[in-house]
């Protein structure tokens, strides 16, 4: 008898539990439905890991103001972003640390994607070594070439006799990266291949970690990742034939940090600009690119003239699709 009552009670509480669970899930779904009402308010970005910190800061600020918009940023490298995401029409915006290549333009055109180019900052591509590599402060462009070309130097002493008899441990961006493309073009040159026996990654921060971990390491990446970590790795000054110049926001701005200071780009699909959310986001992005937000993450902001140029370009593109 007593067992029977307890069973009945548990039966009741089980019903109660089910009812509660039902109410909870209905409430949950209503909440979902409300947010889902703002469907398609999405901006999808892929591309360069060099430009990523700018995009991350901009997107973060934008979402604070527009909480129902879903902005996503994927770190795929400039090239990976163009060929695997942007040109196939999967993203609205592609960040790039080099201009779009002709082959990529063709690929985009084949898929009916019309890229509009904007400059969003200037970078001082930075070569770094371990903090304890006290023998090296400055390298010439040719010495860098020796280090990074296929079949080039193996040990530090191959470059200068007084440097240690130790093998390099090299960290660099993967081939899908615009930083790789830019470095290859300006340092390694067209005749030689970039060596491929180095640790390659689209994740620049991985390079910082790697270089920090080994005394004989060397790596290169966008200035932002150096400015984030000035006390953990050491930047090498570059001698372009007119003396050693340290990478910094000032030298990049003045243009004396040669040949590694370079513009950073973002490409917007003209077709995506038909979408009001994308339009709004791009305008926000371009305006922010002229502010301290860019220098805070380690790059040179665009000038007011460039901003005006950008906005005119945007307006023209928007007019085209409306």
């Amino acid at each position: 008898m007593s067992e029977d009552t307890s069973r009945r009670r548990s039966e009741f509480s089980r019903r109660g539990f089910l009812a509660a669970a039902g109410v909870a899930s209905v409430t949950g779904l209503t909440g979902c439905a409300r947010v889902f009402g703002s469907e398609n308010r999405q901006v999808n970005i892929a591309g360069s890991s060099t430009v990523f910190p700018i995009a991350e800061a901009v997107a973060s600020d934008y979402t604070q103001k527009n909480p129902t918009v879903n902005v996503s940023v994927s770190k795929t490298g400039s090239g990976g972003g163009f060929s695997n995401f942007f040109c196939p029409g999967m993203t609205d915006i592609n960040n790039a640390s080099r201009p779009i290549a002709d082959a990529e333009r063709e690929q985009c055109a084949d898929n009916g994607v019309d890229p509009v180019e904007f400059v969003v900052g200037t970078d001082a591509l930075t070569v770094v070594v371990n903090d304890e590599a006290n023998w090296v402060d400055c390298m010439t462009v040719d010495e860098l070439r020796q280090v990074w070309m296929a079949g080039g130097a193996k040990q530090w002493s191959d470059i200068r006799d007084e440097w240690p008899d130790e093998e390099f441990e090299l960290f660099g961006p993967a081939t899908v990266s615009g930083t790789f493309d830019y470095f290859r073009e300006t340092i390694v040159g067209e005749e030689e291949n970039h060596r491929n026996d180095y640790s390659a990654t689209e994740k620049d921060r991985t390079i910082v970690r790697g270089v920090r971990g080994s005394q004989y390491a060397m790596g290169y990446f966008g200035f932002a990742y150096y400015s984030e970590n000035p006390e953990t790795v050491k930047a090498v000054a570059i001698d372009d034939g007119s003396g050693c110049v340290e990478p910094s926001l000032e030298t990049a701005k003045k243009g004396t940090y040669r040949p590694l200071s370079r513009p950073l780009f973002t490409y917007v699909s003209k077709q995506s600009l038909a979408d009001e959310t994308v339009r709004d986001f791009v305008r926000f992005y371009l305006e922010k690119a002229a502010t301290d937000l860019v220098s805070e993450v380690g790059y040179v902001p665009i000038t007011d003239e460039t901003l005006e140029e950008n906005l005119n370009k945007l307006d023209a593109a928007v007019e085209d699709v409306q």
Partner: peptide, 8 residues
């Protein structure tokens, strides 16, 4: 992480 095209 960098390729979802299904082509390459």
């Amino acid at each position: 992480a960098s390729d979802v095209t299904g082509q390459s």
